[in-house]
């Protein structure tokens, strides 16, 4: 769920941003993910954690951010495997690989359920219920820092475009900047487009990682899938780099 935008002008220092809608969404995602197999709830939980992390950054708060990161990361493996298993076309992966991935998913779900049932998760939800609103004035300096981080990560990517870790770092910095701007009711069209490019690359890399991790016999179908995946990664990497060059001025609101 995206934060509800206020009617006031986003740039006005008088704007007070409240996190309760996203907090309640997080509570609902936790309940749904705990009670049933619901990959959307798992995804929603991760997004809500990331949005709330940025909200705390805008309020210059440090406490609870480690807890949000812990909760978000606890869902990472489950989310990766859900995406991989749901997005693989019929016959794309051999039966043994699918079976191994499904076993990994079962373990990931069990670990995730332990986290959801933990005292720390309950305490986090309780604590978030008390977090005060943030004024746009207070959020201004953290917002500038998040934009500056995007600029630095973008420069680092251009310095070494073959290093996927730099794509990943830019993707994370962009996500935080987007969420910060959304909290403040600002336009994020350009960021979203670039996120799509970097997200597609990340999905392909995650897919490669998981497929290489699971045990499997040699398979011509798998070898072909792996080869296709590597080509796809190269293509998506080039596309993301191009997208960053094309949109960075707009995203960072620099003069043309």
């Amino acid at each position: 769920m995206r934060p509800a935008h206020r009617e006031l002008e986003p740039a006005s220092d008088a704007v007070e941003v409240d996190c309760s809608a996203v907090r309640i969404a997080l509570q609902e995602h936790v309940a749904r993910a705990r009670d049933a197999e619901d990959s959307r709830a798992v995804h929603g939980l991760r997004v809500a954690c990331a949005r709330l992390d940025v909200f705390l950054r805008l309020g210059r708060r440090r406490a609870l951010r480690d807890d949000l990161r812990w909760l978000r990361r606890s869902a990472s493996n489950l989310r990766d495997l859900d995406v991989l298993l749901e997005s693989s076309a019929a016959g794309e992966l051999d039966a043994q690989t699918v079976s191994s991935l499904s076993t990994e998913r079962t373990a990931a779900r069990a670990a995730f359920l332990e986290v959801l049932a933990s005292e720390r998760c309950e305490a986090l939800l309780d604590a978030l219920a008390n977090v005060p609103s943030v004024s746009a004035q207070r959020a201004r300096a953290p917002l500038e820092r998040l934009a500056e981080r995007v600029r630095r990560r973008g420069e680092q990517l251009l310095d070494a475009p073959a290093e996927f870790e730099r794509h990943h770092a830019l993707r994370r910095a962009l996500r935080r900047l987007r969420y910060a701007r959304e909290w403040l009711g600002m336009d994020c069209t350009a960021i979203r487009a670039l996120q799509d490019s970097l997200g597609a690359l990340n999905d392909a890399l995650v897919r490669e990682t998981w497929i290489s991790r699971v045990e499997r016999p040699a398979s011509s179908a798998l070898a072909s899938a792996t080869s296709d995946s590597s080509s796809l990664v190269q293509s998506l990497s080039a596309g993301a780099l191009h997208a960053w060059r094309a949109t960075r001025r707009e995203i960072l609101e620099l003069p043309a």
Binding site: L64, D67, E119, A123, A127
Partner: peptide, 21 residues
């Protein structure tokens, strides 16, 4: 307590954790 912990951030080199305990 959350706000007190926030103020102690400058001392923290590891993790900050909320607990109802």
């Amino acid at each position: 307590a959350v706000e007190t912990a926030d103020l102690m951030n400058a001392l923290v080199e590891g993790e900050t954790r909320v607990t109802s305990l």
